[in-house]
Amino acid sequence: MFRPVRSRRSFEEAVAQIAEAVRAGDLPVGGRLPPERQLAAELEISRPTLREAVRVLREAGVLGAGPGFVQVASERIPEGVLEQRSAMRLEEVAKVLEARRLLEPRVAQLAGLYASDEDLEQLAQILERQRQAGGNRERVRALDTRFHLAIAAATQNQVVVELTRSLLRQVEIARDMALRTPVEPELVVELHQRTLEAIRGGDQAGIEAAMDHHLAHLERIWERESGRPRLRHPPDFLISRAGPHP
Rank of each mutant, 00 (worst) to 15 (best):
R9N: 12
H213P: 00
D176C: 07
R89M: 15
R100V: 01
R32V: 05
V5F: 01
V183E: 07
L191R: 13
A21L: 04
Q170S: 15
S166Q: 15
R55Y: 04
F11Y: 01
R58F: 00
L196Q: 11
V62S: 02
M1F: 08
L218P: 03
L127I: 03
G30F: 00
A108Q: 07
R180I: 12
P78D: 07
A174F: 06
R3E: 06
A94N: 12
A41P: 00
W222D: 08
I45G: 01
L123N: 06
V188G: 03
E197I: 10
L33Y: 04
L113G: 02
I221E: 08
E197F: 01
L215W: 09
E104F: 12
F147D: 12
R3M: 05
E121S: 03
I207R: 07
G80H: 13
R220K: 10
A111V: 04
N136Y: 04
A216S: 13
R100C: 03
I207T: 08
R137S: 04
T164M: 15
V183S: 08
G61W: 03
E52P: 00
S226A: 15
G227H: 12
D176K: 11
L110F: 11
V171Y: 09
R100S: 05
M211Q: 14
E208Y: 09
D212T: 07
A14I: 01
Q17G: 02
R6G: 04
H245N: 13
R220W: 09
D119H: 13
R137W: 02
R141Y: 11
A115F: 00
Q84N: 08
A124H: 01
F69Y: 13
M88F: 10
P229I: 09
L57M: 03
R141T: 09
I18N: 01
A21K: 09
P244R: 14
E91H: 14
W222Q: 12
M88Q: 11
W222S: 08
R100D: 10
R232N: 10
R55G: 05
S226E: 07
E79D: 06
Q158I: 14
Q17V: 03
P229D: 14
A124M: 00
G206P: 00
S166Y: 13
L196S: 12
P34L: 09
F237S: 11
A14G: 00
L57F: 07
F11N: 01
G25L: 15
E225I: 13
G30K: 08
G61M: 02
A40C: 02
L218N: 11
